[in-house]
Design a binder for these strands. Structure first.
Lengths: 226, 226
DNA sequence: CGCCTAGTTGAGGTAAGTCAATTCACGTGG
DNA sequence: CCACGTGAATTGACTTACCTCAACTAGGCG
């Protein structure tokens, strides 16, 4: 979390809640009163299609907002599911709106958070639309690595990752079988190893080059507040 | 444009500008002082990959913001190119921030616009990740139809569409050759015809069913202001 | 010990890509 | 008014990346 985000957090009424892995926090179509800030654990936001297929839009890690867009649009266009058991603090719409009115700087900060979120979705879109399976996977893991590193949960050497290959498949738009093959490929190329819930990166720079990973969309720290 | 958006517009300093088709307004990596509101014509926002491939993230039609995210993030993660000659009105960051401070309702409205934008990108992501070419194309055209209808530039019967098959290909993540085949398929199924810059929809309801099109993410009109 | 879920691998199928040729629409200059 | 050039659309033949189905392995846990 950035300073800005912390200040938002501090100004709001806090109520801690916990949710267990696999049970949806938010359902597609539901209308929401509250958003959450994820304190520990991982979650994912996804959409289901009529034919039962699933597309995971993004994974959330500690420090991220959950369901902020749902609150603003007053209806959730997606579902949110905890990947692991999670802890969150609740943020009520009314509080948020009041905070906006009182301190425009807070509004700006949240605004920035939403925009950064959108930038990530856009990058994800580009990956699925135009990168082949291996590049896409590499890019996906590098983004996770960068985000986790920002909150002290990872480094260029690797990170703990509770995702199954099925979850990854639904995120990168591949079949789980192909995810497995691609991970093997990346391992055999000496780029990284994903085993037992750990991603170990053997060749960070090579991976960045291979995936055409451009970190700039992530590491802007609330520049409007400068 | 919604009432809310119109009020934002009215409160800001307006400077009209025009740009010719094909010449970028905003370059990837550029840092921006101003966003724009598109008054006439079509534009598209896209990202280029290192290998020269392009992914179009979204098309903008009259009433849409251009480059709002770039302004908030203080750097553009994407480029924007007019598809046709366009007219825009310029919105300066400073004005926008001031407007935010004075009237939180305006901030909320813009906030809503950004969230709606993100919802469209998410839907686009789902399409590319999990729908086959024909469904994706159908969904894409239905979304355009719905958005254009909101601003009076189209109806369920069809709309004027200045996009080439190349542009569509870069948007839906297909090759232009395949776009052509898919359009033929949709025509032969009696769903729609795209010819000479016009999309004519022959079977709207059938198309909606075929594409699993769920309009709700688009037709929320600034619910937080109610 | 046996079940259950996650991961791994092989074989064969298919949706979409690439390459290439042809047609079409349209603007421009002779 | 027509020849020409150019960019878009169309179609065919062939290739390929990824999918599906299916079998098998490896841990974790009651």
């Amino acid at each position: 979390m950035t300073d800005a985000e912390l200040r938002v957090l501090d100004s709001l009424d806090k109520r801690r809640r916990t949710f267990v892995a696999g049970r949806d926090l938010v359902h597609q179509g539901q209308s929401n009163q509250a958003a959450y800030i994820l304190m520990s654990g991982w979650a994912c936001s996804y959409k289901l299609l009529a034919d039962g297929q699933r597309q995971i839009v993004d994974f959330q890690i500690p420090g991220d907002f959950l369901g902020l867009r749902s609150v603003v649009l007053h209806i959730s266009d997606h579902s949110i599911e905890p990947v692991t058991d999670i802890e969150v603090t609740e943020v009520h719409v009314s509080d948020l709106m009041e905070a906006f009115a009182q301190t425009p700087r807070l509004a700006t900060a949240v605004f920035w958070a939403v925009s950064r979120d959108e930038a990530m979705v856009v990058e994800h879109l580009v990956g699925i639309g135009r990168r082949d399976a291996a590049e896409r996977m590499a890019h996906f893991l590098l983004e996770l690595c960068a985000r986790l590193s920002l909150v002290g949960l990872g480094s260029k050497a690797g990170f703990a990752c509770p995702l199954t290959q099925y979850l990854i498949a639904d995120a990168v738009g591949l079949s789980s079988v192909h995810v497995n093959r691609v991970l093997r490929h990346l391992r055999e190329q000496g780029f990284l190893t994903f085993r037992n819930g750990f991603v170990t990166i053997h060749d960070y720079d090579g991976l960045v080059r291979f995936a055409d990973f451009e970190i700039s969309y992530l590491d802007q720290i609330g520049p409007l507040l400068r």
